[in-house]
Computed example of a mutant assay.
Amino acid sequence: MNQIKELQKLIRLTGDRAKLDAKANGTYIVYKTKDGQIVKEYYNGDIVPLSDEDVPHA
């Protein structure tokens, strides 16, 4: 059980680091929401859902 918590912590920290890098470079991160929607989150907090046409490997 402890390994799962450690893994969840590392995943969260990786996402936090990606957001910091996006802010520092004026870019965005891409991820899948809990609902399964793929979105771009810009460094300023704007979230833009991607359509199927925008995702070539979907």
Rank of each mutant, 00 (worst) to 15 (best):
M1A: 07
M1G: 14
N2T: 07
Q3G: 02
Q3K: 05
I4E: 07
I4L: 08
I4Y: 02
K5P: 00
K5E: 11
K5F: 04
K5Q: 08
K5L: 12
E6R: 06
L7T: 05
L7M: 11
L7D: 09
Q8D: 12
Q8N: 13
Q8I: 00
K9Y: 01
K9F: 00
I11R: 15
R12F: 03
R12A: 14
R12L: 09
L13T: 03
L13V: 01
T14I: 05
T14E: 15
T14W: 04
T14Q: 14
T14H: 09
G15E: 14
G15P: 04
D16W: 00
D16V: 02
R17A: 11
R17D: 11
R17M: 10
R17G: 02
R17L: 13
A18M: 13
A18Y: 02
A18R: 11
A18V: 01
K19P: 03
K19S: 07
L20M: 13
L20W: 02
D21Q: 12
D21A: 13
A22M: 05
K23A: 13
K23Q: 08
K23I: 01
N25W: 03
N25E: 12
N25F: 08
N25T: 14
N25C: 10
G26C: 04
G26V: 02
T27K: 10
T27N: 10
T27Y: 03
Y28H: 15
I29K: 04
V30M: 12
V30T: 14
Y31K: 13
Y31F: 15
Y31S: 15
T33H: 03
K34W: 00
K34Y: 03
K34I: 01
G36P: 04
G36R: 04
Q37C: 05
I38T: 14
I38M: 08
V39W: 00
V39T: 08
V39S: 08
K40P: 07
K40D: 10
E41K: 11
E41V: 03
E41R: 11
Y42A: 07
Y42Q: 07
Y43S: 15
Y43L: 02
N44Q: 05
G45M: 04
G45T: 02
D46C: 09
D46E: 15
D46G: 06
D46K: 14
I47F: 01
I47G: 11
I47V: 15
V48T: 11
P49T: 06
P49R: 03
L50C: 12
S51R: 06
S51A: 05
D52E: 10
D52A: 12
D52H: 05
E53K: 10
E53F: 00
D54L: 03
D54S: 10
D54V: 05
V55R: 12
V55F: 00
V55E: 08
P56D: 05
P56H: 02
H57W: 13
